[in-house]
Amino acid sequence: MRLDFDSQGKSVRVYDYCYRTLDTPDSEWSDRLTTTSSRGNIIAPLNVAQLYEFKVRAVNSKGPGDWSQTVSILVR
């Protein structure tokens, strides 16, 4: 799956993101993953026909921001 999100400006050093399955209530978030790009982040392997939830936050020289609202994506 490819994860894209809106860039938060030039002051951002990296972005953190996490994901989890939505098959069980309160499932654990993945380890925190880090990227320098808001576009073209490939997440694999994921299970086909599984619903996943994602969240992202920006990190700048003052530290990490708040986590975004979550978004749910069904893998095809």
Score class of each variant (00 low, 15 high):
Gln69Val: 13
Ala58Cys: 10
Glu53Val: 01
Asp26Val: 00
Asn41Thr: 05
Arg32Met: 15
Ser11Arg: 12
Arg32Tyr: 08
Ser7Gln: 04
Trp29Ile: 02
Gln50Cys: 12
Asp4Lys: 09
Gly9Asn: 01
Asn41Phe: 01
Val75Trp: 02
Thr34Lys: 14
Tyr15Lys: 09
Tyr15Ile: 09
Val71Glu: 13
Thr70His: 06
Thr35Pro: 06
Ile42Ala: 11
Val48Phe: 12
Lys62Phe: 09
Asp16Asn: 15
Pro64Gln: 13
Gly65Ala: 11
Thr24Leu: 09
Asn41Arg: 06
Ile42Leu: 12
Val56Met: 13
Ala49Arg: 13
Phe5Gln: 01
Asn41Trp: 06
Gly40Trp: 04
Gly9Val: 02
Ile73Asn: 07
Val12His: 04
Pro45Asp: 05
Val59Leu: 11
Asp26Asn: 14
Thr36Lys: 15
Ser68Trp: 06
Leu46Gln: 01
Arg57Gln: 15
Tyr19Asn: 03
Val56Glu: 11
Ser7Trp: 00
Asp26Trp: 09
Gln8Ala: 12
Cys18Val: 15
Gly63Ile: 10
Tyr17Ile: 04
Arg76Thr: 02
Asn60Gln: 06
Arg57Asn: 10
Ser38Leu: 04
Tyr17Asn: 08
Tyr52Ile: 03
Leu51Gly: 00
Leu33Val: 00
Leu46Lys: 03
Val12Phe: 02
Val59Thr: 14
Asp23Ser: 09
Leu46Val: 05
Ser7Glu: 08
Ile42Asn: 10
Val48Leu: 14
Leu51Arg: 03
